[in-house]
Every structure is written in structure tokens, then in C-alpha cells.
Amino acid sequence: MGRHTQEEISQIICADFQAISDFLAEKPLFVGGKPTRLDATACGYIGNFLLPRRYKGAIVDDLLGRSHLCQHYERMNQEFFSKQLFLLFPLSVICSKKPALAQIT
């Protein structure tokens, strides 16, 4: 990543989230009826950008515009973490219905 500008890094990360979003589509989980490593990994990456609100800018705006990724993150937290921890960071408060940035090609 050191060879890229900050704007290029943002575009690469947004393109990654676009690919994750396309693969998840409207499914509750990425593959099958049980959470997989892919679900856990995606949950971790999404959470690192959204909680706590460390990052601002195009990446977070793009991610917040992908409500089904935010909903996937919430489902994984409800599935795997205690309600006490989950209630500290309810994404329903954080995620909005902002439109996703234009697809990066």
C-alpha cells in the first residue's frame, strides 16, 4: 500500500467492500445456513472501520451506504457476542441509509 496515495488506498478498500457486498447480496450469510470463517472475517473488517468511529471519509461513507453489510455485522454480533457488549455499539444507531458511492471500476 505504500506505493499508493491515500485516495488510491480508499478506492481499493471501497472496491473490496463492493466485492464483499456483491457476493453477500441479500443473503443472511455468505455461504450456507451457518456462519463461516468468511462471515467472521467480514464482520471483523466491517467492525474495525465502524466501531469505534476511528475512521472518517469515503471508506466509512461507502460502508455505511451498504445497509446489508451493516445488517450482516449486527447479525454476527448478536450470534457470537454477549448482549452487554453488543448494546455498547448498536449499529442501528451508526448505520444510515446513505447511498453507496458509485461503483469503482
Rank of each mutant, 00 (worst) to 15 (best):
G44P: 07
L24T: 04
F23H: 12
L24W: 01
S21V: 05
F89V: 03
Q6C: 05
P35Y: 13
D16I: 09
A100S: 15
Q18T: 15
Q78P: 01
Q11L: 14
D22W: 01
Q71N: 12
D22L: 00
L88C: 08
H72F: 04
T41C: 02
E7K: 15
R75T: 04
A42N: 10
T105I: 05
V60G: 05
F86V: 14
E79R: 13
T36R: 04
R75D: 05
G57D: 09
G33P: 03
Q71G: 05
K97Y: 11
L38A: 15
R75Y: 05
Q6F: 01
T105F: 08
M1T: 07
L87N: 15
E74I: 11
I46L: 14
A100Q: 13
C95N: 07
I104Y: 14
I20S: 08
R54M: 13
Y55R: 08
T36M: 07
L63F: 04
E74H: 11
S21I: 09
T5Q: 00
R37E: 03
L29E: 04
E7Q: 14
D62T: 00
R3E: 12
Y55K: 01
K97I: 09
Q78N: 14
G33S: 07
D62F: 00
Q84H: 03
T41A: 15
Q6A: 11
Y73E: 04
R66L: 06
I46A: 07
A15V: 07
L101K: 12
I94F: 14
H68T: 12
Q103A: 10
I59G: 00
A102P: 05
K56N: 11
A42D: 05
C43P: 05
L101Q: 06
I13M: 05
D22C: 03
E26Y: 01
E8W: 08
C14I: 10
F17D: 08
A15Y: 06
A40K: 07
R66K: 15
Q84G: 03
Y45S: 08
R54G: 11
F81W: 11
K34S: 13
L91Y: 01
P35H: 10
L63K: 00
L50K: 03
Q78I: 00
A102H: 04
L88I: 09
I20N: 06
G65V: 08
C43E: 04
I20A: 12
F17V: 02
V31S: 03
P35I: 12
K98L: 14
F30S: 00
I59H: 02
D39N: 08
S67C: 01
F86A: 12
S82M: 06
A40L: 14
E74N: 00
P35D: 04
S67G: 05
I9P: 01
R37N: 09
K27P: 04
K56I: 08
Q6L: 10
R37H: 04
F23Y: 10
R3T: 04
K34M: 13
P35A: 11
E7I: 09
G2C: 04
K83P: 03
Q6I: 10
F49Q: 03
H72M: 03
V60T: 02
D62G: 08
Q103C: 02
